[in-house]
Design a protein around this nucleic acid. Structure first.
Lengths: 180, 180
DNA sequence: GAGCTCATGTGACACTGTCAACTACGATCG
DNA sequence: CGATCGTAGTTGACAGTGTCACATGAGCTC
């Protein structure tokens, strides 16, 4: 498992061959089949792992009493983007396999989604939390994805991920405050 | 080329095997090597094709004199998301290979980006166009990506892609109008 | 020690991208 | 007209890949 994780970070999903996993773990190529039904299941487990690690990070952010609601939300979103920067392959894996049909993956993803939901509700109230939560998650995922594929060059757009997240949170706060 | 495109839509990038491409085109497996240096180059050409088709669509949207600036922007963003819905594999290909090192892909992507830039400038002015353009493209890409991987279930978030795009454009317009 | 269980090793199968060698055909020139 | 050339296509081979049926072996209980 640790072997597969290392290989993923080094060379991407294609580098996670069963032979390489076995070699890294000190066993031979067919050995992983005792622990994983399938290569897909192995990768899914890595994805679940990634989902949980982000959820842990956001949970930590959420417990910080010093920060404002807006600050916590920013940090939570940046946690996702940071994972995309530091472990791009691992990040890509989270969204590569459709979540449908993988109850484990669905549960892990749902855990993070609920963290974001709570974070957003602190800022805009329960009533609008779902709509704004969906918007923020989408945008954060988009920022991470565009950075990852190189389409967010700073010399072209004059902004980086951090500023985009700040713009987003500011806009959400302004939009929500205007209503009532 | 058409053969590869059909295979991509039917079964994803993994279904685009050189044998299948050849068979679909009525030739044998090695024939594509006369036209493409590499399988990666073949897929890149499909990606460039996709970028251009979205750019064409947005160009058409941009020329519509009936719609408001906000409406045109909405339609332009939805064009990208619609491609993600109708041809998910083709969409994924656009962002799968890093744009660096592929001048053709970079040029095609840049063409679409400039379309969006103009569309945004019509709404918020030249000065802020780049920042807001980056934000909108990121968000649209994120919406498409989350829909594609099944993480944007309507029963959970109570919104779909269309509403998210509308919320975004509204927020941008409000944010830009507040400043001066 | 006999017998059982379970993780692991091994050989085989079908498949992939890739390339070098070979063939077939149409255009171009003397 | 025939010879030449270049291009597109075919074919066989090679190194990898995921996958599985089967063999192996260590470690345990009676």
């Amino acid at each position: 498992m640790r072997a597969a994780s290392e290989l993923l970070d080094e060379g991407g999903p294609d580098a996670v061959t069963l032979r390489a996993v076995g070699a890294r773990a000190g066993v031979s190529r067919g050995a992983p089949y005792g622990h994983f039904e399938d290569k897909a299941h192995l990768l899914t487990e890595l994805a679940v792992n990634a989902w949980n690690s982000v959820a842990d990070e956001v949970e930590r952010v959420r417990a910080d009493p010093e920060a404002t609601a807006g600050g916590r939300l920013e940090c939570g979103l940046l946690a996702l983007i940071e994972l995309g920067r530091r472990q791009p392959h691992r990040y890509a894996l989270m969204f590569s396999t459709p979540v449908a049909g993988d109850p484990e993956a669905a549960a892990a993803a749902s855990r993070l989604e609920n963290q974001y939901l709570a974070l957003v509700a602190d800022l805009v109230g329960e009533a609008d939390a779902r709509r704004y939560g969906a918007l923020l998650m989408s945008s954060a995922h988009g920022i991470a994805g565009l950075e990852l594929s190189g389409h967010l060059a700073k010399e072209k757009w004059e902004v980086g991920g951090e500023q985009l997240v700040r713009m987003l949170v500011d806009a959400i706060r302004a939009g929500a405050a205007e209503k009532p």
